[in-house]
């Protein structure tokens, strides 16, 4: 860690001003990612703006059956909120598939969105890494890349976004509420994170000085047919190798609306809305599920150590769709795959 100045923001305005004023400033929510990265000598904020006092903890009802989740609502608070469990069980399930109870008690919604990749090299300052040090090279290409991306990677970076929660939010079509020096704006969850391209140092599309204040969810028809299926190196307390958030609106055995988001495979929760649209009106059966998996992974490319993720993701998508269609979502406690 490097010495930094510490201020406690009392209002969102305070925080935004402090953030915009100093390019070295970073927001501190619960710190489970930021403090971790500072200790590993990866993050070097010169100023910490503590946002824990901001009034952003609430989970509020919205007209039309939606919810607004404050950026400081803890992962546990969201996952166990009765309204979330009833209306967005997919979100609850995805959160409970991640990290540990202790971490979820601390971790915030905003922090989870902004958490950085777990790429081994990103975490190890003695190795070249374009995300950590633009232009230094990508050590994961040709290196130890078991956990890396199979979709949307570039020759500059093949990292994945590690969040489980965000995969569900992407599937549910959440909206991110943002506050910045130029005021408030909304951003679709699917546009929040970005692909690495030539600028892997940028994880998302937030402008300097902007912060997340809330996540908005609309009313939806996915409470019955959904699942979050996470595959990982041990049965709990491990990041996803591959995860699938699936939600289907089914009528008379046919797909009315379909959402599939993938975790652990790309620099952002991977969703392909065009592909999803193609399958509307198709029967909710094995053949369709295979078709969807094939379509989503058509451009998948392995890096050696992670080649297995392609067949694994394919099978996982089919399985998740089957779980969702049959109304038997993956239980995050019982470890047998449903």
């Amino acid at each position: 860690m490097r010495p930094f100045s510490y201020t406690r923001a009392e209002t969102v305005q305070d925080a935004v001003i402090a953030l915009a004023a100093d390019p070295g400033a970073q927001l501190l929510a619960s710190g489970t990612n930021l403090v971790d990265l500072m200790k590993y000598d990866v993050a070097h904020p010169t100023a910490i703006v503590d946002i824990n006092r901001l009034p952003l903890k609430e989970i509020e009802d919205l007209p039309g059956g939606g919810l607004r989740i404050g950026a400081l609502a803890s992962n546990s608070a969201v996952a166990y909120d009765r309204r979330v469990q009833e209306r967005y069980p997919l979100l609850s399930s995805a959160i409970l598939a991640g990290a540990s109870p202790q971490l979820r008690n601390a971790a915030t919604t905003g922090g989870n969105l902004l958490q950085r990749t777990r790429c081994f090299y990103f975490y190890d300052p003695s190795t070249p890494c374009n995300k950590r040090e633009p232009g230094s090279g990508c050590s994961a290409i040709g290196g130890t890349n078991r956990i890396h991306a199979i979709l949307g990677a570039s020759d500059k970076c093949i990292a994945t976004h590690p969040s489980d929660m965000c995969v569900a939010l992407a599937a549910l079509g959440a909206t991110v509420e943002i506050e910045g020096p130029d005021g408030r704006r909304d951003l679709a969850m699917t546009d929040f994170h970005r692909l690495p391209g030539d600028q892997p140092e940028r994880d998302n599309t937030l402008a300097p000085g902007e912060m997340v204040t809330a996540i908005r969810l609309e009313g939806n028809h996915f409470a019955r047919h959904h699942t979050y299926l996470k595959l990982r190196g041990r049965l709990s307390y491990a990041f996803a190798l591959v995860s699938v958030a699936a939600a289907i609106d089914i009528a008379d055995g046919e797909i009315v609306d379909l959402r599939v988001a993938l975790g652990g495979v790309a620099h952002k929760p991977w969703r392909d809305t065009l592909a999803e649209a193609e399958f509307a009106g198709q029967p909710a059966d094995e053949a369709t599920f295979r078709g969807i998996a094939g379509r989503l992974l058509a451009a998948a490319k392995g890096q050696g150590g992670n080649d297995f993720k392609i067949p694994l993701a394919e099978k996982a998508i089919v399985r998740a769709l089957r779980q969702a269609a049959s109304g038997t979502p993956q239980d995050q406690v019982v470890k047998a795959v449903q």
Binding site: G142, T144, R146, R234, L235
Partner: peptide, 30 residues
């Protein structure tokens, strides 16, 4: 049998998962 593996980058000779989030030892659920 199922979890423990030091993932070495043989180009540099470094164990890349030199932490216990990524060097998996059995957790309670296992």
């Amino acid at each position: 049998a199922l979890h423990e593996e030091g993932m070495v980058d043989h180009r540099t000779g470094r164990i890349m998962n030199h932490n216990i989030a990524e060097y998996h030892m059995p957790a309670h659920a296992d």
